[in-house]
Design a binder for these strands. Structure first.
Lengths: 215, 215
DNA sequence: CGGGGCTTACTAACCGGTAAGTAAGTGTGG
DNA sequence: CCACACTTACTTACCGGTTAGTAAGCCCCG
């Protein structure tokens, strides 16, 4: 594969920042398609046309690269929000449904998330605390939205019901992603996610909800 | 009879069947705690006090060992059914809730399932077809149960709604397991699973469902 | 002309799998 | 009832391949 290293394809060598971004994008693809343990620094390096030592030059170690990949994913994930901060109340659930719809065309990122999340359950995995923290934050945000909407509608919630609902919403999104990744024809990610969230919310709030999104 | 001491095999070598079972149990622990790629044959072998070549003597290759581990998990998983075949109709959902309750005390098996399922999303993973097949069968069984219960109640389902509901039920179970594994204090596996399934079914069937299980 | 970006070269650790040897059991014919 | 043939259950040794990480040096750009 490394034929002639001779060639100056670009006018200048990419700047440090740009090169790092290239590597992060490549690492996302590699870790997403092969997992963290099975995806090697050599694989990542090959995708940007350098050697694995070149990658280490920028990130120091594989673990540090993973951490930056995870932060990078977060950045990309909220990119379409375009500055507007993460919504609350019923808009949060519309945002989740919209995200699922967008995800149906971003298989790579979804796969990276699924693989790393599953892998993080293994003992001492470098991503486990990141994933756990992420779940915790998400549960907090979503359960707050549940409480807000319930208050708005004068619905009283049982003890811990907001948290249970939040966990269920996250769970159904992750679980559907998994099934969709393994068999895209068997599961319509956007439709199934919307229907499931609607079911869960309707049951919790005791009345119909409107998740229609137009944009 | 009097002469031939039908001795308990304490000092003798374990029989083939027993040894294989020992190795399968060890492999379940290893793959569950470290994943398939990261868990080595040496790890498995050490747990039964032999070398990695000894493990290969019994199973031929690491891939074949994994396959038998997956079947082994299935066997253990339905063990509590005690001969009675997998139920249908509303009993199937009660069975799922019961399984979740039992799983809360079988962390190892749940972890193995979660890790291998997540890993299976990677390209060319030896377990991917097994997991995909498993999801497919489960969706089929559960969607049939949904249709049966709907017919029983004279509820008409929209096109593909039974399948969507089935996918959501599986998804919420898997997703909650993931969150529970990463933070057992934050999620009550049994309660959250029961509540989520009840929500989804209630929405699909347009009326209350009874998931109470006693045994 | 200096330093960052990168390569080449190397190391030490593992990995799964194979081959060959060995000790212990099992079956059987005389 | 036992000797001999054969099988089973491993072990030790080794192979080729892959891995992350280190060290040192080259080269191009500003």
């Amino acid at each position: 594969m490394a034929e002639t290293t001779e060639q100056a394809p670009k006018t200048t060598r990419p700047s440090r920042a740009r090169r790092r971004e290239e590597i992060l994008a490549a690492a996302t693809r590699v870790f997403g398609s092969k997992g963290y343990h099975q995806g090697s620094l050599g694989d990542v390096a090959a995708q940007v046309g350098i050697t694995h030592a070149g990658v280490l030059h920028h990130f120091g170690s594989k673990d540090k690269l993973l951490w930056e990949v995870l932060e990078y994913r977060d950045r990309v994930d909220v990119q379409h929000l375009e500055g507007k901060h993460i919504p609350g109340g019923m808009d949060l659930f519309r945002h989740l449904v919209l995200t699922a719809r967008l995800n149906a065309d971003r298989r790579g990122i979804v796969q990276a998330y699924a693989v790393l999340t599953g892998e993080s359950v293994t003992d001492g995995h470098p991503a486990s605390s990141w994933v756990a923290e992420r779940f915790s934050v998400l549960r907090g945000e979503i359960s707050q939205a549940v409480r807000d909407v319930a208050a708005e509608r004068d619905v009283s919630l049982r003890d811990g019901e907001a948290e249970r609902t939040a966990a269920a919403v996250i769970a159904v999104m992750d679980g559907l992603q998994l099934q969709w990744l393994l068999d895209p024809d068997a599961v319509d990610l956007a439709a199934a996610t919307a229907a499931a969230i609607e079911s869960i919310l309707t049951a919790t709030l005791g009345g119909p909800v409107d998740l229609v999104v137009e944009d």
